[in-house]
Design a protein around this nucleic acid. Structure first.
Lengths: 240, 240
DNA sequence: TTTATATAGTTGTCTATACCACTAGTCATA
DNA sequence: TATGACTAGTGGTATAGACAACTATATAAA
């Protein structure tokens, strides 16, 4: 099961092995794992290496330890990651729902004070302003205005914007997306929003503003989304 | 700086030391940390112990590593934790806002199918049903209905419910709260909600349903909260 | 000037070992 | 019966050292 000559790290192999055992049900929530010393002897690896594997899984919540007792399989989390929250595309595709985007506007504009502040730009720096309608199985779900720093992401096309913008960012900058800060509030649809979302003016809507940054802190996106309240619930999993 | 005879683990002491240096600005975002070997020699501790300290901080996003280059201070996150999201009390108190609760109802009722399903109880099992108005500086912010399993938390009083229910749960069960699953949606206030929140019927509101569990997966709370949309925004920080 | 090549320094992985702290059960004692 | 001491097993902390993988810089060769 563990191949010491593999280029893959041993702790990673053990980690995947335990993960698989949990996924297949060989290890069920509440079950005790073999002790660290047992793993150590079974696979002829150091206990520290075992701990490194287990640490990863404790960290992401699949296992938990109790000193003096053992290590146990945690209740599985409903959603694997918080990932799905960030991106409409990923969220819907994760559920097997066909998604698409209608790009209704695609401009380069000058940043106002608020946008500049959030994106750490100077006022009047150029930014892409992209207005999209997000569809799930051809039903309008959200209306979204996205701002992207034009100097950083030059060459962005309307076609790329109709796909996943995140993918474009990660590939173009060759740098992973790190964190997003989101604000969620409730409101009532105004004329424009009502029209795009095909709902009555004054209907309840979810307003979500998202500020996305790379791992090194560089802001790469500011997006304001308007979701139909009757079609969209927002799920968050939190663990302490 | 590092006291080897202290009962506090060395890795923890080093972790706190680095944290403090970041908080005081001695280490700024983007700065490189001293190398692991340097820490090791400076404090006469093992490099593995240094790594353990740094690992913690990488894990929670304060530092990031680049193989071959070094370890660097990450851009600081806006909110320290996702913690504040879960609990109205902790959230507000974190901002230095005085909070209180009016318990308007305190009953033991029998679980209906939905509640039983979410709480992993049988239908008609007894549950506390607590209806509270959440106030921030004496202004109504939310109306909340909380269900708690009565057999697990017997002895809960109206007075304890007026304080933080979470504190009661953790102390009574002597077990830490692990995760919460939240659903957020927008809606319009009905008669009852409008009255409690002192807003007009039909005003936009945020509906938040929260299902809280212990680390071992035991459900301990199901809460439905209604927030005034004009007084409450919901903030989420997500990191990949 | 450009292109390899070495080299020093960094984090990544892994070992073997040791002792501490905590849990749960056993067993002797009061 | 109840209490306390003991013991085996668990995870928690820590050490010292080794080699691999990667990055940047300096140096030598084309």
């Amino acid at each position: 099961m563990i191949d010491k000559s593999s280029p893959l790290p041993i702790y990673y192999q053990l980690e995947e092995l335990i993960k698989k055992q949990i996924e297949t049900g060989e290890l069920e929530p509440g079950d005790a794992l073999p002790s660290e010393r047992e793993y150590s002897e079974t696979y002829q690896i150091s206990r520290m290496t075992v701990r490194q594997a287990v640490n990863q899984l404790v960290q992401n919540g699949m296992l938990y330890r109790q000193q003096g007792k053992g290590t146990f399989v945690a209740e599985r989390k409903i959603e694997k990651q918080l990932l799905g929250l960030t991106s409409f595309t990923e969220d819907m595709q994760g559920r097997g729902v066909q998604t698409s985007s209608d790009v209704v506007e695609f401009n380069i504009v000058l940043a106002n004070a608020y946008i500049a502040g959030q994106m750490q730009l100077k006022k009047k720096d150029p930014v892409y302003e992209i207005k999209r309608i997000r569809l799930a199985e051809n039903t309008p779900m959200a209306y979204e205005i996205t701002y992207l720093p034009a100097t950083l992401l030059n060459g962005l096309t309307k076609e790329a914007a109709a796909q996943s913008i995140y993918r474009y960012i990660e590939q173009h900058l060759n740098s992973p997306i790190g964190q997003a800060k989101q604000t969620i509030e409730a409101s009532a649809a105004d004329d424009v929003e009502a029209e795009y979302l095909q709902i009555a003016k004054g209907s309840p809507i979810l307003l979500i503003e998202r500020n996305t940054r790379l791992k090194d802190g560089t802001p790469v996106e500011l997006a304001k989304s308007v979701y139909r309240a009757d079609r969209y619930k927002f799920k968050v999993d939190i663990s302490r």
